[in-house]
């Protein structure tokens, strides 16, 4: 009931009319602790948007708010034109959003291929995409480079590969908006480079990617725009060049880097 009304006013609230995703003034409090505080950000079609910050900065919490797994204390979420603040997670993802998880959420008792196939079947069941799920799964498994392990049970795989399974699963739903939570950690140098290429390739089809990543090199290479979180607050946003020069970012990272290197 409230959703259509909110949608109407939505267009006046939104700040970035071209955004595939926009969140406005999102705050999350756990008990007395504020995990995310008044964060607004957006991700555009055909671009890779970075979301970086030290551990505990609120990146994953922000992802959870966007996907609907975490109810925010405050704030609104838009996917395209549509306000989704009050939609359950599955309704949001049916608008064309998919994500990966920092703490793995694979289907451990299924094989790699079945993980991707299941996602393709989900998509097939709620979208008007008529492509047979098995074709989609075959293509995706190939594309993310999992062909050699496609019959392995996922809970037997190393973390880095399991993250690629999550990526493949997300891609199998043909998302317009892709949220990647540290999908590159656990990968070696070549694999990371391939991952970067894959992301850039995806944006050419118009996909919007929101990327949480600790690998600064990768972030600076692929991102069009970067938002920086520290202690739940947005401390900077801009192009990779602007972010690298930003004194506030340097302070946050220099302060946190020594801890993270462990």
């Amino acid at each position: 009931m409230s959703a259509p009304a909110a949608e109407k006013t939505g267009s006046t609230v939104r700040r970035d009319p071209h955004a595939a995703l926009e969140i406005i003034d999102v705050s999350v409090k756990f008990g007395g602790i504020t995990a995310v505080s008044d964060v607004s950000l957006s991700a555009r079609r055909g671009q890779i948007t970075g979301l970086i910050g030290p551990n505990g900065a609120g990146k994953t919490t922000t992802f959870n708010v966007i996907t609907g797994l975490q109810e925010p204390t405050n704030g609104r979420v838009f996917i395209g034109e549509r306000e989704v603040s009050h939609l359950p997670p599955y309704r949001r993802s049916r608008l064309g959003m998919a994500r990966t998880f920092q703490r793995l959420e694979v289907f451990g008792s299924l094989s790699v291929y079945e993980n991707v196939l299941a996602a393709a079947e989900f998509h097939h069941s709620w979208s008007d995409d008529a492509t047979p799920p098995r074709l989609v799964a075959n293509e995706i498994v190939e594309r993310v480079g999992l062909s050699t392990v496609s019959e392995e049970r996922v809970d037997a795989l190393p973390t880095g590969i399991a993250r690629l399974v999550e990526l493949g699963r997300a891609l199998a739903t043909r998302p317009d908006l892709l949220l990647l939570d540290e999908v590159g950690s656990g990968l070696n140098h070549e694999e990371t480079a391939a991952l970067g290429d894959l992301m850039i390739e995806l944006t050419r089809d118009g996909t919007a990617i929101l990327l949480v990543e600790h690998d600064v090199e990768l972030v600076m290479r692929v991102c069009d725009r970067i938002f920086v979180l520290d202690f739940g607050r947005l401390i900077a946003n801009g192009t990779p060049e602007q972010i690298q020069k930003d004194p506030a970012v340097q302070a946050a990272y220099l302060g946190a880097d020594t801890e993270e290197q462990k």
Partner: peptide, 9 residues
Amino acid sequence: SPAACATLG
């Protein structure tokens, strides 16, 4: 993983 399922629609 109910969470992953929900985010896959």
